[in-house]
């Protein structure tokens, strides 16, 4: 089994894709991380203590995981969804009653979205209480706050998309708060909704924000966030040395 695996890793095709080569030395292990576009944001080595559950509760990891789940389920949902009135609502019904595993897909997206909001908040508080925000990690904390806001915006824009009573009135209430901004509140609200009320324009606008603009911005911020973990000295493991 193992020899088959190593032989496979030795083939020309495999080596053309993964540059780490055969062998189980630390060099090879380092190369898998270093030579991988997705993993190279992380350092090759990591403090043993940073892997302990109690230190981070893996909240950042789990936040990222829910983001990935949301991207995957979200893209699948886009296959069934029209951002128009009232077809959007009819699509919800189709997902529920006709599409294979449609309900499951929607459930997973919805609950993962709630989970992400909770996890990101929890991540923030955990980082604060550990003191992990302090210099030299102060800028990464700011990036984190931006990611928290992005998470909220993503969730909020997605909330309107089913176009049911719950969605419509939640967005109406939320957008009414914005119009309280002095001087330009009404303008901002108009810009956000594409009209004076929550209507088909708002649905389209929220759809584009939810599916394209905000995820792209979030992806950029996430990349910076991970990169800065490494550049700011790795995961913060606390003041006290291990016994």
């Amino acid at each position: 089994m193992n020899s088959l695996y190593s032989r496979l890793r030795g083939t020309a095709v495999w080596r053309s894709v993964f540059r780490s080569g055969t062998g189980d030395t630390n060099l090879h292990r380092s190369l898998t991380v270093q030579q991988n576009i997705f993993l190279h944001l992380a350092s090759v080595k990591i403090r043993r203590r940073a892997l302990e559950f109690g230190v981070t509760w893996y909240l950042g990891t789990l936040s990222m995981a829910s983001f990935v789940i949301l991207v995957v389920t979200g893209v699948l949902l886009m296959l069934y969804y029209h951002p128009s009135v009232p077809q959007a609502y009819a699509d919800m019904k189709d997902l529920q009653f006709v599409v294979s595993a449609g309900v499951f897909l929607r459930n997973l997206h919805r609950w993962a979205a709630h989970a992400m909001v909770v996890l990101v908040f929890a991540h923030m508080f955990k980082v604060f209480y550990r003191g992990a925000y302090r210099p030299p990690r102060e800028f990464n904390w700011v990036v984190g706050v931006m990611l928290l806001l992005l998470t909220l915006f993503l969730s909020y824009t997605g909330y309107l998309l089913p176009w049911d009573q719950l969605a419509f009135w939640a967005i109406t209430v939320g957008s009414n708060i914005i119009s309280a901004v002095p001087a330009m509140g009404a303008k901002i609200r108009f810009l956000m909704l594409g009209g004076h009320t929550v209507n088909a324009n708002a649905l389209l606008r929220f759809y584009v924000l939810h599916c394209v603009i905000l995820p792209l911005i979030a992806a950029v911020f996430l990349a910076v966030h991970f990169w800065r973990i490494r550049k700011d000295g790795g995961l913060y493991t606390g003041d006290k040395p291990r016994e």
Binding site: Y89, W169, A170, V173, T197
Partner: peptide, 20 residues
């Protein structure tokens, strides 16, 4: 199951109307 209510109706305000 994720909640889904009736079709959005601007004329029928639920009481209370709640944000997320």
């Amino acid at each position: 199951d994720a909640p889904l209510e009736g079709l959005a109706n601007p004329l029928q305000t639920p009481n209370p109307a709640k944000a997320p």
